[in-house]
Structures are given as C-alpha cells and as structure tokens.
Design a protein around this nucleic acid. Structure first.
Lengths: 188, 188
DNA sequence: ATATTAACCAAATCCTCATTTGGTAAAACC
DNA sequence: GGTTTTACCAAATGAGGATTTGGTTAATAT
C-alpha cells in the first residue's frame, strides 16, 4: 500500500513493492495472480474499511441533522489522517489500467451512493416525492464527496491545519444548501 | 488530444496518436521531443484557454455577486460541454508520469488561485483582514473547484441533464456559504 | 535551378518492467 | 521419518511501446 500510494499504480514497480515488503517479486506472485489483482484487492479492502468507519460514525442518534453531518465529515477526515496510504489509493490517483478502472469506478459509485443514502435519510418526504429527487440527491452527494476530497488533497500540502478546521469549512461551504435540501425548500 | 482524453496518458500509445492524426509516430518526434512534452504542451494550451474563457465571462459588471457566480459556474460547464477532450485531460485523469505531474499540479494551482482571486474580489474588507483570510479563501476555492469538477464527471454519465440544471445545483449547494463568506459573517 | 529545410515513413532499437522458471530450505503434516 | 506444503529467491523470459535511424519526397528559399 505504501508504495502504491506514494508512487501511484504505474510508477510502483513490483520490484519496489517487494523490496518494501522485504521479499522478492516472485513471492508476490505466490500470493496474487497479478499486479492489477493486488491493487484491486487493496482498493476493495480499504473501501470496506472507509465505508464501515464513516457509516458507524453517523449511525448513532443525533439531535440535529447538522450534528450528524459534522460527525460524518469529521469521520472522513479522521480516516484520511489515520490511513493516508489508503486515502491516496482510493481518492487521489485514478488508475490508468483498464482492468482497475472498473473497480475504481465502482468504489466511487459506492461512496457517492453511501452519501446519498445518508442525505436521503435526512430529507423530508415532500422533497423525496419530486420526480428528480434521486438525481438531485446524487448530485449533492457527488459535490459533497468531491469538495471533501478536494480539501483532503489540499490538506496534504497544509498539514498544519487541524482537522476540526477542515470540518468547519466544509460545513460552512455547503451546509445551508444541504439544510434547505433536507427541509424541502427550493429557491431560485 | 482525442486519444489522450479517451485513453488517458499511459494507455495512449504514440502509434494510436499518430494513426488518429493520419501520420506515423516518427513524424511526431519531428515536432515534439517526447510523449511527455506533447502532453504538457496540450495541457498548458488548454489551461490557458479555460482560464481565459471563464475569466472573460466573469469580468463584466454584475449587479449582484450571485449573478457573477452563476455566470462563472455556467462558463465552466460550457467549456466542459464544448471542449470535452480538453476537460478530460485537464481534470479527469491525473497523470502518473512524474514529468507531467508537476505541470498538472501547477495547472490546478492556477485554477484554484483564479477562483480564489474571484472570491476575494467579492469579499468585504473586514473579512479579508482576518489573519486566516487567504487560507480560507483557498479552501473555499478548492471546494468549489472540486464540487464543480465532480459534477462534470457525473455529467459525463448523465448527458441528458441540461447545463442549466447543473449550474443551479452548484449554486444551491454552496451559494449560501459563499454569500456569507462574501458578507463577512461567521457562524458556529 | 539548386540548395536547404520540412514533412514524412518503414523498420530497427532498446529499455523498462511484469511475469515465469526452476529451483532450495524450512515448516507443517501424518 | 518421510511427505507435502509453504515461503522464498536468482536468474531468465517476453511483451509492449517509446524512441532512433536512415532514408525519400515535397516545399521553400536564394
């Protein structure tokens, strides 16, 4: 993971991965059928971990939707902080290899879908009855995911900024929009 | 551009690029010193075009900041619509080649900085005097850029959605946060 | 008209890896 | 104690693809 994350898939050679693991490339092939498979297994494992981590953070009871939102965003950045390699593999370097691209897309689909489910759970019935509700939720989820992710990339070059500040900025940036969404208002 | 955009840098072979241009690979080397240089020149040219395009769209006089914002966001999506290859090269597939990575980072730095300048121009003096003003603007710019870009990626799979709808969703998502930023308010 | 430069190409190079081969040695099993 | 499985590796193998070579032909310049 370290080598994949630091170098990106293409630049990570099996030789370097093996060296980092203290073995030789041949040993890797005793355990994984190809470089692509190795990458895919890592990606999937990390996705499961991220989704479980954020999911459990937001699953409790919250007095206000906003609190739940804050906890979710905070959980994401906590994951980034604690699993920097995982995050870079998952969100920073889209793969070029076609064999991995479909896995990558699936991961992002799952991430967006997860956020959308979360948003839907907070939205009022009236809004959900609108014919474009699904699509709108998906768009909001996509924007939230990418805004968060963009900040995470930015954070990488500004390590001195504390996590709590990132969380605040994300909420400031989009909260009101999300709040109105969850209250069923539309404005022009 | 077409081949780079469709396949991504790694998967685009010089042979295919040449074929698409109706020539042989050797001819490319009469004009460009390497595949990396070719990619870099294309990236830089497209960046200049995008920045000029959005820049001129938002440079006029607007009664309200919100109108200016709408026009800027609309200009971005118009560019995506009219220059799909350019957009994919610029924003969709981060390069893996180290020689190109620095160019890619510089491009994104310029894009974020351009958005930040735009936001700063609309922000009140009081807010700009805060010590963290620069950093906050940068964070907002980063989020706006990535939210927009995320929607553009999403759009790629939902071509039936009209541009105007994307623009509205972006504004809904983040406008109020931006509005408060430009009015100097902070809330907890 | 001739010299120079530019556009072009078919066929070699050549280099970087991923992947395989064909083993040894230690551990686990029975 | 012998057999099988597992962990391991040094040294090939081989493919894909960027880049060069060594030209020809068309255009431009003088």
């Amino acid at each position: 993971m370290e080598v994949f994350a630091e170098r990106g898939y293409q630049e990570a050679s099996m030789a370097e991965i093996a060296r980092a693991a203290g073995i030789t490339p041949a040993v890797i092939y005793d355990h994984f059928s190809s470089k692509a498979e190795l990458q895919i297994l890592l990606l999937e494992a990390q996705t499961d971990e991220l989704i479980a981590f954020v999911g459990s953070a937001v699953s409790g009871d919250f007095a206000e939707t906003r609190e739940r939102m804050r906890v979710g965003v905070d959980a994401f950045f906590t994951f980034v902080e604690e699993h920097p390699y995982a995050w870079r593999m998952l969100f920073r370097d889209p793969p070029t290899d076609p064999a991995i691209l479909s896995t990558y897309r699936e991961i992002h689909r799952r991430a967006t879908a997860g956020i959308a489910v979360f948003l839907r759970a907070s939205a009022p019935t009236a809004l959900l009855d609108e014919p474009e509700a699904e699509r709108d939720l998906e768009m909001f989820a996509e924007m939230l995911k990418m805004a968060q992710n963009g900040l995470a990339v930015w954070w990488y070059e500004h390590r001195d900024v504390p996590r709590s500040e990132l969380v605040e900025r994300v909420l400031e940036f989009c909260w009101i929009g999300l709040e109105r969404l969850t209250e069923g208002e539309r404005w022009s």
